[in-house]
Nucleic acid binder design. Sequence first.
DNA 1: TTGTTCTATGTTAGCGCTAACATGGTGCGA
DNA 2: TCGCACCATGTTAGCGCTAACATAGAACAA
Lengths: 336, 336
Amino acid sequence: MSSEVTEPGTGPAGAAPTLSEVAKRAGVSSITVSRVVRMPDLVAPETRARVEQAMRDLGYIPNLVAGALASARTNSVGVLVPTIANSIFADTVQGLSDKLEPLGFSVILAQSRYDAAREDRMLAALLSRRPEAIIMVGSPATEEGSRLLRNARIPIVETWDLPANPIDAVAGFDNYKAGVAVAKHLVAQGRKHLAFIGGDDPRGTRRWFGFRDEALASGRAEPRRLILDRKDSGSVAAHARLPDVDAVFAANDAHAIGFMSGLRKAGLLRDGPASAQPVAVIGLGDLEMGQLISPTLSTISVHGDAIGRTAATLTLERGGERRIDLGFELVLRDSG
Amino acid sequence: MSSEVTEPGTGPAGAAPTLSEVAKRAGVSSITVSRVVRMPDLVAPETRARVEQAMRDLGYIPNLVAGALASARTNSVGVLVPTIANSIFADTVQGLSDKLEPLGFSVILAQSRYDAAREDRMLAALLSRRPEAIIMVGSPATEEGSRLLRNARIPIVETWDLPANPIDAVAGFDNYKAGVAVAKHLVAQGRKHLAFIGGDDPRGTRRWFGFRDEALASGRAEPRRLILDRKDSGSVAAHARLPDVDAVFAANDAHAIGFMSGLRKAGLLRDGPASAQPVAVIGLGDLEMGQLISPTLSTISVHGDAIGRTAATLTLERGGERRIDLGFELVLRDSG
DNA sequence: TTGTTCTATGTTAGCGCTAACATGGTGCGA
DNA sequence: TCGCACCATGTTAGCGCTAACATAGAACAA
């Protein structure tokens, strides 16, 4: 990345051409070139053609860094997710980026890896690039992160949850209610011994609380809660640690499918409908995969891409509702 | 995003504080503040403490846009992927971002959605932000894209393939050989009627060619090739369109699992080992999911995150090997 | 003492672009 | 014919920072 060495590529020698080089070549002033790039309608057709020719000749690529400094608009949005691999958050990133890219916004992506310190560092790093908005999964884990965002004076969208005191805008669903819905369903199905498996991140924990509260309210014993790390594989062995359980809510589909794999090994999985399952399993996320396995996975369906698109919209608009609940659906298939 | 309206947040009023405001408050010149931020060792401890206090008081966040313009270093890397949702490319993005973020680089993410025109637009958009390198999945689809990258005079890393005439650096594996390896295995297993399902993107097509060539070389009839769009679900019905086939190579695990789901409905899937399967299925990608389903999925394992990490390294280093073959492994489990 | 070498800090200029404000024509109604 | 609006283009200044080059004082050897 040093510049003393010969650079790759066979392009024109020397530094990238600038606005004023284009201007000189076209015999106009730089502002005219700038207008051709940004407001072509303001430039006379012949002048425009001459400038466009000069841009082509030189292989001019506008420098948005300089443009951003001069105009105080970066046309970029910072996006912070816990993780992007094997994750439903990828849907959200895809959704928001599909919405923002056509408008000329770039997505600056950062991962916190569920680490509060890293999250704060990434927030500071994002803000130092002066994005015009920040979209994040969840809410800042620390006071410091929260302060950074509040002071940033740009739209902030928290997603995948409905925080009580949002910094600014929200696009998500009620994780607590999702837990309630699952418990309600399992109880109605006559399940007696409930358990919850998943991470202990804020959203997972909120699901757990809803699940537990509803189970207790229905006269069941307090469900067991197994905290797993972020690898599906941990869930395979989970069954051994949950004897006598006849219904499991997994905080995400990957854990659910892993758990079912453990059940299969234990001979506790049927290819029949939910009523035939010795142990009911409900996931969350509605991965396409869930419909392809056998038995098909019952799950809480969440619209990850809609969350992303909505977050993008909230980023662009100032007025209107700033708290959007995209809800969820309990999709019943064969696993529970 | 307009600034006339009251901004959200409860932070200090007015615009974000600048270097020189911090300098004034600390009673030093701006360059000293700049040094405290970037090379603290050059500043006397007392001065540094005073400056740091001033930064805290004002809630100063460095403006990297201005810094980038002045220093001609943006500390950012452009990343272009076909798609990020439900995709193994997410592993690659995660890998490279894990490597780059600690070094102070930001990832600017763009998606082409397998659309050549959009790819060119995204490349131009990325370049206009003056990233210090570009990492992309595959190679530019058009001459124009190729030209843009060659003229950019920054490191370019093409991934997930081993192009014959790379623009600069490469981190990938041989998709053709992957197809060969699968065909070889299926033939050795005594399979007679081979088929390939998957997309017709460049890498999928390369896998197909390897698969077909090896099948023909082994005396099999030309395998059938079914081109599916990017939804797993298409693969469920694929079996109906491939009667008499006894071995299938799916260009990715999602398609493989979908196809197996179709087989199950047709009563052509056993819980036993590969030798018991009426139809062998091999995927590509080695999703964790593949080990959790039954029968477990045989697949070509590709190290998506290693590709990302390697690409990041190639981005940072100038010397050394610029073409890295990360290989693949045929992982045999129960599906074929 | 004098010159030399550090160390800590400052001054100047400019990165490439855009906002805001000219300017100089042209057309046209009164 | 004047005055005014309007269109196309230009001039000026500056966004917030950093590179490169001062400078001033302290430490120290000869």
